[in-house]
Every structure is written in C-alpha cells, then in structure tokens.
Write a protein that binds this DNA or RNA. Structure first.
Length: 877
RNA sequence: GGGCGCGUAGCUCAGUGGGAGAGCGCUUGACUCACAUUCAAGAGGCCGUAGGUUCAAUCCCUACCGCGCCCA
C-alpha cells in the first residue's frame, strides 16, 4: 500500500464492481420493509454542479445507511426534460448555424432536441456515478419517456374531467426573450433602482386635475382609469369625474377602490389593466376595458398610437420627453422597487393578457395543507413547514401552458369546423360533436413542473396499478434544496394526493444552497461555480462528499472553501494510513481464535467503549437528519481517539509483545474497531471504506451490504473511560512540561508522580507504561509528597502531582511564571465555583447531581491550587 | 410592508439551561519504525447590543442594531 491515499486508483474500480453486481438494485419483496427515495431529476442536458453534488451526497448517505440497516432500499434516478432550458440550448446551437427554430419547423426542431438529449443526456448520470451515487440505474427514468408521458396525459385528463383545468384570458407573466408565458413563481423579483414619475392628468371640464405616480410611464398609453382610495378625503370630490389622458386624449374615469394605498405617491393610481396584474383585478371589479399597447416582443403596438414600433424602453423615453414638453411631467424621484424578472434569462417580464391554460389550485391545496398539518408529511427542518403552509394557503391558480415546442403537448384538440374543444387520452380522429376530421391540437406544451410533479408515482408505473407502486409508494423521504419547495415539493404533494389519494413522501429533508467562498450564489454569469468533477479529480469523491456533509447544518447554506476540501482529503489520508498500520501488523492474526473480553487491557476496554458510544452517536444523528454531526462524530473518534491514543498504545503490544496473546488481542481490537468505524463511515466515504474493508478480515461481498453496526451497551465501560481520562491527562501534563521546558523529544525524562489517593495510585501502578510510552518518560510513583525532587517542573492532573526533575535545565523564573499563570486560571475558576456553592438558592433549587458535580469540581480545583501555591513557595525559596 | 434565518477564536462554521468547541490560519518544537496530507505543545473569544425569565442564560423570551434570504 502506498503511503498516500490515491482516490483515482480505487473509485472507478469499486463503482463498476457495485453496479455490475447489482448491489444498487431493488426488487419488490413484501417480506422486507422498503425505504424509498426518488431522486430530484437533474436537467437532461445539464451537467453536475455543486448543488447536485450536495443533494445527491445527502441522499446517498441516507440510502447507503438504510441499506446497511437492512431495509429494501430503492433510490430511483432519472432526468428532467427541462422545457425552457433545453429548448434554449438547442436554439443557441441553431443560432450558431444561422438558423432559428422556425426555419426548421416544429417537427424537425424536436428531432434536433431529441438528438441533443441523446448526446448529452448521459453526461449527468455518468457524473452522478463518479460521485458514488448508489441509485438503481436499472430503473432510470426520464420525464418525457413513454410512461411519464402517459402519466402526464392521464393526470391532465383527470383534472380536466373534474373541472380543475380551464382555459381563459388572464393577465400572465410574459418573457419577451423566451417568448413564453411563465408561472407566478418563475418570476424573480429583484430590487432595482428606478424612478417614480409624477404625471398630471387634467379633468375634462374645468381646471381640475389629478397627479399620478408611476414607475412605468410607457404603460399610460393603455390607461383606462385613475383610482383613488374611497376614504381619501383629498380626492373624494374627484371620484366619478372624467380625466383626459395626456398624449392620447382618451377620456377615462376616476374610480374609487380599496386597492389603492393612499400613502404611496400621490394616492392616485393610473389603471392599466392590460399590462399590470393589480390593475387587471381593479378593472375587472369596475367593468373597465383592457387596452393592449404592447406585443409579445415588448414592442409598442395596438393602441399605442404614434409610439407604435418602439420597444418598451425607447417608448418610455419618448413618452417622458413628450410629457415634459407638454408640461404634464411634474416631478421625478429616484425610487428603488422590485421588478419581475424571468428566472431563466433575467429579462424583465411583461405582464400581459393572454389566453392560457390554468389549474384551479384551491381544491388541490386543501388536502395538501391537511397532510402537512396532520403530520402525514413532516418537513426537516421544521421551520419550512410554515413557508410551505403560507404559500399553500395563499395559492393562486397555476398557469400550465407554455409557448414552447419541447415538452408534453397539451392533450387538447380544437375542431376547425364547429369550434369544439376536446381533451383526450388518445389522439382523436374526428370531432366528437360534428365528426369533422379537421382537428388541430393545441400548439402549446405543459410547464415542465407539471410532469415533475408526478415524479414519485409516474416513475413507479402510475396510472397502471403496479406492484412497484403498491410496494414503494408513498416514498420515504424527499431530499431537495430549499429553492424548489414551491416549484416542485408543493406540486408533488398536491399531485400525489390527487392522483394517489396518498402523500408522495412522509418526510421532506430540505438543505440549503452551495455558495462560493464569499457567500454568493454560484452562477454562470458570475463564473464563480466550482465544478464537482474537477474536485473529484483533484481530491477524490469521498473528500468532496465529506466536505459537503460536515460543517453543514440542516437547511442552511454552505460556503465552498477549498481549505475545507483539503481537510477532508487529509482525513481520507489519515484513515488510509491508520489502516495501513493495522494491515501491516495483522500477520499471524487469526480472527476465530481471538481472546475473550476477560483478557482485555484498559486501552482495549476504553476504545471499545468509545467505539460503542460512537456507533450510537452516529446512528442517532442520522436518524435526526443531523448528517454533519454524524460525520463529525466518526471524524473525532477515528482521528483523536483511535489514531492518536489507541494506535499509539497498541504499538508496543505489536512490536514487542510481552506475550503472544496480547499481540493477538491488540490485533483483534484494532481490526474490529477499524472495521466497525469504516462501516459507520461508509455512507459518507463509500470508496475508501470499501477499499480498506476488503483488505480487512470480513464477511460478505461488499461493505455496502455489511450490517450497520449496532450499539452494544455492554461495551460501554465508564470505569475504563475515567481511568484512561486520568492517564491521558497525566500524559498531557508531562508533555506540556516537556514542551514548555524545551526537553528534546528524543530525550527520556523522569516524571515523579505523587498520587495520594489510593485508586489513582493503583491505576498508575498498573498502567504506568501507558504514560511512559506516550510521554516518553520514566515514571516514579509515590504515595506522598514528602520531598519533591529539587529543580523540577511541576504540574497537577486530577489530584496527581507531577514533578519532572530538570537538573541544570530548569529556569526558575520561567517555571514560576508558568505556574503563576496556571494558578491564576485555577483560582479564577475556583472563585466561580465557590460563589455558586455559597448560594443557598443554588443548593436548594439546582438538581442534586449538578450540585454534586460542583462540589467535586471545588475539591479538585482546591487541591490543584494548593499544590501550585506550595510549589511556587518552594521555587521562590 | 409581512415572514424566516444568521450574528460564537483572525477566517469558515459546529454546539449546549450548569466548567466556551472544531477545522484552517498563527507561534514553538519534532523527518518519533501508519501518516510531514503528520505529531506534540501553545496563543487567541464581555458567544451582536439592551432588558426580562431562572438558583443559573452564549443557549429560553422581548426589543434593538447589522447581514442574508423568501413572499407581497
């Protein structure tokens, strides 16, 4: 084995071994309990980014852990067709050839998209394999494969038949660049600096006028009214009067509506129903017309009069110029406000009236609210429940049609002769009403999230009643980022409850975003993304996974620091070398002849006790979704306890055993604890643990399927832990003296240990060789401190006084100041404890064990202080 | 405007109603036969501010300040 761990040598090999042997595969087995996760499907043409790496690492940890626990684990992978994103990529590709999708036509264009999908579709799944994802590739799905498409159609039809889908003219969010409508949640509101323009609208008769304030003056061309608040005394006399719209000359009424905020601007608001969602609602209430002044390219047309042909920003300038010239523009203020942007391309969206398909959400939301309120679905962390409920309780209808070509075509046909609208499961031949064969399918496709909303059951065979569906549904847990709770989690819940009458998953484990080192979101435009594949190549998949899991608290964001990656790699290397040590010293070890517990040394009992606690801590943390805590527990155990103490204590037993049996015993405990720790670590670092586990004595074909270590309370040995703690503290005290007094590491010192207490003295007598080995010294044990050695440095550890004679080496002043410093710290602490114990309230009200603890503390601190003081007195002569 | 999260060592972040933790960085010493991707020792913190609850608050409650996110 090389002295440094090289992930490249092992990762690919083991992944192939696992996959070829179908260790990831799951089959229905009613005799076993299923544990199911459906993978949030990454975009088919995308590539792995850090968000995917985090999301899938977390899933893989849970999956591997539960698999080892014996559950029948299914992790179902797949990809999403990602309508807008994919279509945009192919359009870019065409643009480089000087073509547009219209040059090709719908059919040819779709061929190109499918070809693209074939070419790039496998990229991300190959990358997931490199990450170590142990998902069942035999069940890989795609949101536009045959089964999912059938599910989409069936689902649409069921909603349609229940009257939950309708088509209507409504104000929608239009992206002038993507040339499609997007849903409300796809609009990103960004704070942008802008201006607030105050415009004068004169009354038709007399010199009266109103002043409106607006951030979008160009839309005034489509104004149909000015609204004021009904209770606003300033304007009460104006309500019902008629104003003349500047530049246009249109006569518009002054109306009263509660929607108006009297404190904003002038308290008078222009109403542009065709280009503002709020105005749209106001106009509906008042029966006002809608006047379109802009087309789908955000260029003025319709009733825009002389401004026709200008794009919206040019038009704004022109309108302002004209208003100013004609004396209507009274004031301009700087004003920062939230502007809706397309979440895909960041173009400013344009509210527009358009005929689209919608899902009536209220009836679907009710059971989705109940499911969470009744605890049938639980969010982890819990605080996301509130976010979810708030959104569900204020839900609006979902616009599901998209003016794209790539996606699930809306299964609705229109008769060209009689105008009949037909929603059908199978492509119809003729009109159901007039029998005309002249049918045309709706040109639009469905929102991508419509199909991903069905993911937990469409992938298991729905609408067929399959055994898979019966066995694996509802799935156990969904793991996903907090950014898509509304987009996806909420939709799966409503869809699952509607189609299956059962929740799609019992728990939702939400994680944060991976940010760059400066705390910014990783994005293409900033160029601050870190490629997980590059990281895997430089540091290994295990290191990446470990780094993503540790120091991460559920639901909160995570900054990506290369330093932390180095730390994870160092940990892998540490495990590698600890394992090398164990493996190099296993010759002659016969597991079946291992000595029984009666032969265990103190160190053996101690490490087994610590190991047992570690098993419990890791398991409990995983159960609570505290993955970072679990990882930290193994890290601390392996590095601090197993490597730094146990291995050091095992060395003499292996190199110079007093008896062969002790060597056997050390080998046994080393192998057992290391193997168990590797099993605990396997969900986090699958590759290195498999590589080492295979070399250790083991049963079974893979660590993946090794039984998860079970907490054994009989291994917990508090006596051994306390004893080791004392020996470790004495060791640390001697090391401290050696270091402070500049005793060369090669030089063996003498340590005079004075243990007045019998228990401690016996302990030190029995295990003095631990201290001697670990602190490189010769121990002289005494029962009383009658004559401390002259010219020695002093320390105290748990009632044990330590003197390290340093004839000729000791610097009295230096030693005195060291002891003074220590004494000051001890006295400070002692004062605090004494103060506490002096309080009657504390003694009567605090828990008895707490009081007891404080008393013990006082005793220990007093003894330490006394010893230090005495020593100082001697030094000062 | 409403909601949520965060503010702990120089940096990044864990954590807990009862003696402040880790990693990195820093200082000092060591190529000690698993590992210098290491080992040993050390320095470094009114746990954002002000109140309150409690015998006891970094932790619970309230207000405020600062930062970030979501929704309208």
């Amino acid at each position: 084995m090389p002295t440094a761990y090289n992930p490249r040598d092992v990762e690919e090999k083991w992944y192939r071994y696992w996959e070829e042997n179908k260790f990831f595969h799951s089959e229905v087995d009613p005799s076993r309990v299923p544990y199911t996760i459906v993978m949030p499907p990454p975009n088919v043409t995308g590539q792995l980014h850090m968000g995917h790496a985090l999301d899938n690492t977390l899933q893989d940890v849970l999956i591997r852990w539960r698999r080892m626990q014996g559950y029948n684990v299914l992790w179902l992978p797949g990809t999403d067709h990602a309508g807008i994103a994919t279509q945009a990529k192919v359009e870019e590709q065409l643009a480089r050839e000087g073509l547009s999708k219209y040059d090709l036509g719908r059919e040819k264009f779709l061929e190109r998209v499918w070809a693209w999908k074939e070419e790039y579709g496998g990229r991300i799944t190959r990358q997931l394999r490199r990450l170590g994802a142990s998902c069942d590739w035999d069940r890989e799905r795609f949101t536009m494969d045959e089964g999912c498409s059938a599910a989409v159609r069936e689902f649409f039809l069921r909603l349609y038949e229940k009257g939950l889908i309708y088509r209507d003219y409504y104000i929608v969010n239009w992206c002038p660049r993507c040339q499609t409508v997007i849903s409300d949640i796809e609009v990103e509101h960004l704070e942008k600096p802008g201006q607030l323009y105050y415009i004068k609208y004169p009354a038709r008769e007399g010199g009266d006028y109103l002043v409106v304030a607006t951030t979008r003056p160009e839309t005034m061309l489509g104004d149909v009214a000015v609204a004021v608040h009904p209770a606003d005394d300033r304007y009460r006399h104006m309500v019902g009067k008629v104003l003349v719209l500047p530049l246009v000359g249109r006569e518009i009424p002054v109306i009263a509506d509660e929607y108006v905020d009297p404190s904003f601007g002038t308290g008078a608001v222009k109403i542009t129903p065709a280009h503002d969602p709020h105005d749209f609602e106001v106009a509906r209430r008042h029966g006002l017309p809608q006047i379109k002044v802009m087309n789908e390219h955000a260029v003025m047309d319709g009733e825009a009069g002389p401004y026709r042909g200008l794009d919206r920003w040019e038009c704004r300038k022109a309108v302002l110029r004209d208003l100013k010239e004609q004396g209507y523009l009274l004031k301009v203020e700087d004003y920062t406000h939230a502007v809706g942007h397309c979440y895909r391309c960041e173009t400013v969206i344009e509210p527009m009236i358009s005929r689209q398909w919608f899902v009536r959400m209220k009836p679907l939301a009710e059971p989705a609210i109940a499911a969470v309120k009744e605890g049938r679905i639980r969010f982890v962390p819990e605080r996301f429940t509130k976010i979810y409920l708030h959104w569900m309780e204020n839900i609006r209808d979902w616009c599901i049609s998209r003016q794209l070509w790539w996606g699930h075509r809306i299964p609705v046909w229109y008769c060209q002769d009689c105008g009949e609208t037909m929603a059908e499961r199978e492509t119809p031949e003729k009109c159901a009403r007039c029998a005309s064969p002249r049918l045309e399918q709706d040109p639009d496709v469905l929102d991508t999230w419509f199909s991903s909303g069905l993911w937990p059951f469409s992938t298991l065979g729905w609408p067929q009643k399959t055994r898979d569906l019966e066995y694996y549904y509802p799935t156990t847990v969904l793991v996903t980022g907090r950014d898509i709770i509304f987009f996806w989690v909420a939709r799966m819940i409503t869809s699952g409850l509607f189609a299956m009458e059962e929740v799609p998953f019992k728990e939702v484990f939400i994680h944060g975003l991976v940010l760059d080192a400066l705390g910014r979101k990783m994005s293409k435009s900033l160029g601050n993304g870190v490629d997980p594949i590059e990281v895997i190549e430089s540091h290994g998949a295990d290191s990446l996974r470990f780094m993503l899991v540790t120091g991460n608290t559920p639901g909160s964001d995570l900054r990506f620091h290369f330093e932390r990656l180095d730390g994870a790699r160092n940990f892998a290397n540490k495990i590698w070398n600890a394992s090398r040590f164990v493996l190099m010293n296993l010759d002659g070890y016969r597991p079946e002849e291992a000595p029984g517990p009666e032969a265990y040394t103190l160190a053996d009992r101690w490490i087994l006790s610590r190991y047992a606690r570690c098993v419990r801590a890791v398991t409990e943390s995983l159960e609570a979704y505290e993955l970072g805590e679990a990882a930290r527990a193994i890290y601390d155990f392996l590095w601090d306890e197993f490597c730094d103490w146990y291995i050091e204590l095992a060395k003499p037993r292996l190199y110079h055993p007093r008896e062969p049996r002790d060597r056997q015993l050390a080998q046994h405990v080393l192998a057992r604890v290391l193997k168990g720790a590797l099993e605990l670590l396997h969900p986090f670092m699958p590759f290195i643990t498999e590589e080492i586990w295979q070399r250790l004595p083991h049963r079974g074909r893979t660590i993946m399927l090794a039984p998860w270590p079970v907490y054994q309370p009989e291994l917990v040995d508090e006596g051994a832990e306390a004893a080791m703690e004392l020996l470790m503290e004495v060791t640390r005290a001697i090391r401290h003296i050696r270091s402070e007094m500049n005793v060369p590491p090669g030089k063996t010192a003498t340590a005079v240990l004075v243990a007045e207490e019998e228990g401690a003295r016996e302990l030190l007598a029995g295990w003095r060789h631990y201290v001697e080995g670990l602190a490189r010294c010769r121990v002289e044990l005494r029962a009383a401190c009658d004559a401390p050695p002259p010219q020695s440095a002093h320390g105290v550890a748990r009632g044990v006084k330590i003197y390290v004679p340093l004839a000729g080496l000791i610097d009295i002043n230096r030693e005195a100041s060291r002891l003074e410093k220590e004494l000051a710290a001890v006295e400070k602490e002692l004062a605090r404890v004494k103060g506490k114990l002096a309080s009657e309230a504390f003694l009567t009200k605090a828990a008895p064990d707490v009081v007891e603890k404080e008393r013990a503390k006082e005793k220990d601190l007093s003894a330490r202080a006394a010893s230090l003081r005495q020593r100082l007195a001697v030094l000062r002569g």
